[in-house]
C-alpha cells in the first residue's frame, strides 16, 4: 500500500509554493516518513523555521508549527525546547537562513548540544528573493549578485556543524529520496543536536544561471557527486576529488543541554551553588 502522507499534511494547504523541479517537496515527504516511522505525536512535535522557500515547509505539516523571522529558527526553537523538553523539536530551513543571518544561532545550538533536529535544505542560493549567492554558493558560480562569478569561498555545512559541536551530523541529497527519511529519523532519535544537510536544487534561480539544462541534469549532478561514507573509505584522494560524502558523517555522545539544565535545577533546589 502506498504511504499515506495525508495524515500529516494540513487539509487545504496544498499546493505548496515551491517551483516545479525544486527538491524541497522531496524533503517534506522524507520528513513525514521519518516522523511516521517514529510514531511522533503531532501535538507533541514542534516544527520551527526561519524565512525563505524551505522555511515555508512547517505550514504544510499538521503539528505545532512556528514560522519565525529570518535566521532565528534555532533561537526560537531553543526557547521551545528549554521550556518543554518533552516535545520533539525539528527545525527546517535553507542555507542562507541557517548559515548566514542565522549562523550565530546555528553554531550555538550545536555547541549546547540541545536535543533538536535541524534539517537544512542546501540549494546554494537565496531562492525566494530571486537567486542571490549564499554562504554555500560554490566559488565562481553565478547568482543574481555575482554576475562575474562568485568571489566568495563557501561553507561546508556539515563540517561547520561538527566543528561547532553537533553530536549527530548527516548529509543526504534530494536525489536519494529514500535515504532522507532514514537520516532524519536517526537524527530525531539521537539525544542531542542533530544536523541533517540535504543537498537540494533550485532550477529556477540557480540552475538557470549556471547552465543546467534541466532539473534532470541538476538531479544527476547530485547523484554523481554523492559518495556514501562507507564507499569513500575504499576510494583514493584522487577518486574523491569533487565528490561530496553522504550518510552519517559524525556521531558522538556528549551531555545534552536540557538534561544538563535539569541538573542545575537540582543543584539550585539542593542549596548548592
Amino acid at each position: 500500500m502506498a504511504f499515506d502522507y495525508e495524515k500529516y499534511i494540513r487539509p487545504g494547504k496544498l499546493p505548496h509554493i515551491w517551483c516545479p523541479g525544486c527538491g524541497h517537496g522531496i524533503v517534506l515527504k522524507g520528513l513525514i516518513r521519518a516522523m511516521d516511522s517514529l510514531n511522533l505525536k503531532k501535538e507533541e512535535t514542534a516544527i520551527v523555521s526561519g524565512i525563505g522557500c524551505a522555511s515555508r515547509l512547517p505550514g504544510y505539516v499538521d503539528c505545532c508549527t512556528l514560522h519565525t523571522a529570518h535566521g532565528r529558527a534555532a533561537a526560537f526553537a531553543t526557547g521551545v525546547k528549554m521550556a518543554r523538553p518533552e516535545m520533539n523539536v525539528i527545525l527546517v530551513g535553507g542555507d542562507g537562513d541557517g548559515t548566514a543571518i542565522g549562523g550565530n544561532h546555528f553554531i550555538h545550538a550545536c555547541r549546547r548540544n540541545i536535543d533538536m533536529t535541524y534539517v537544512i535544505m542546501n540549494n546554494y542560493i537565496y531562492g525566494m528573493t530571486g537567486g542571490q549567492f549564499s554562504p554555500t554558493t560554490p566559488h565562481m558560480m553565478k547568482a543574481s549578485t555575482t554576475p562575474y562569478g562568485n568571489p566568495d569561498p563557501s561553507f561546508d555545512i556539515a563540517k561547520l556543524a561538527i566543528g561547532a559541536g553537533a553530536t549527530f551530523v548527516a548529509r543526504g541529497t534530494a536525489f536519494n529520496a529514500s535515504q532522507i527519511d532514514k537520516l532524519i529519523a536517526e537524527g530525531i532519535q539521537h539525544k542531542g543536536m542533530s544536523v541533517i544537510e540535504i543537498l537540494d536544487d533550485c532550477p529556477t534561480t540557480y540552475g538557470r544561471r549556471n547552465k543546467y539544462k534541466s532539473v534532470i541534469e541538476m538531479m544527476n549532478r547530485l547523484k554523481e557527486v554523492a559518495v556514501p561514507v562507507k564507499a569513500a573509505e575504499k576510494m583514493t584522494a584522487e577518486q574523491l576529488q569533487g565528490k561530496i560524502l553522504t550518510g552519517v558523517l559524525f556521531k558522538a555522545d556528549r551531555p545534552e543541554y536540557c538534561a544538563e539544565y535539569q541538573k542545575v535545577i537540582e543543584r539550585a533546589k539542593g542549596g548548592a551553588k
Binding site: 523571522a69 531553543t78 526557547g79 521551545v80
Partner: peptide, 23 residues
C-alpha cells in the same frame, strides 16, 4: 523549577523568550 538561558546574542535571547512564551 524555572529555566534560565544565556543566549548567544540579543536577538537570540528575545527569540528564545518568544519560543518559550508559545509553550
Amino acid at each position: 523549577g524555572g529555566k534560565f538561558i544565556q543566549m548567544e546574542d540579543e536577538i537570540g535571547a528575545y527569540a528564545a523568550v518568544l519560543g518559550a512564551a508559545l509553550t
